[in-house]
Amino acid sequence: MIKQAFGGTYQIMRGMGVTLKYLFKKPVTNQFPDEPVVVYPRFRGRHVLKRHENGLEKCIGCSLCAAACPTQCIRVEAAENTDENRRSPGERYAAVYEINMLRCIFCGYCEEACPTGAIVLEHDFALAEYDRWDAIYTQDKLLEPHQPKYIQIRDDEVFVPQDTWRVNK
């Protein structure tokens, strides 16, 4: 009986000890969005349509991203650049570019298919909307610049160049 009482107390103390230990540790909870969230550089989040340095869109409306997309969540309609209305270098630009973020599985195939590096899965992950229709991201929403304040990119990720893998092993 006494043994039991002591034993119980010991267990409680042990449990409380863990609590006590964490009381003095730095909390892991992130005060999102007041505090930035740190993600790895290769984290695949929300898409961004890139621009050239001169401000022209990199996207040429070729629709290869839509062809590669396993969930068919990208819709592209192309149009022709004119001298008055030039949106991208070359002849063709995307007049409509939409991604249905509810369908997207963030596989990154679109990025892989893109011949101009126009679409890139960047680090934003806060994609909640109040309306389902708002989850269809249109071109003006997707185009650069898009730099959410609450994202910080870790710089301590170690990249191992692909062709050195075998040597390192």
Partner: peptide, 8 residues
């Protein structure tokens, strides 16, 4: 011209 891709 630039109407659509053939596979679409």
């Amino acid at each position: 011209r630039f109407g659509a891709r053939a596979w679409e």
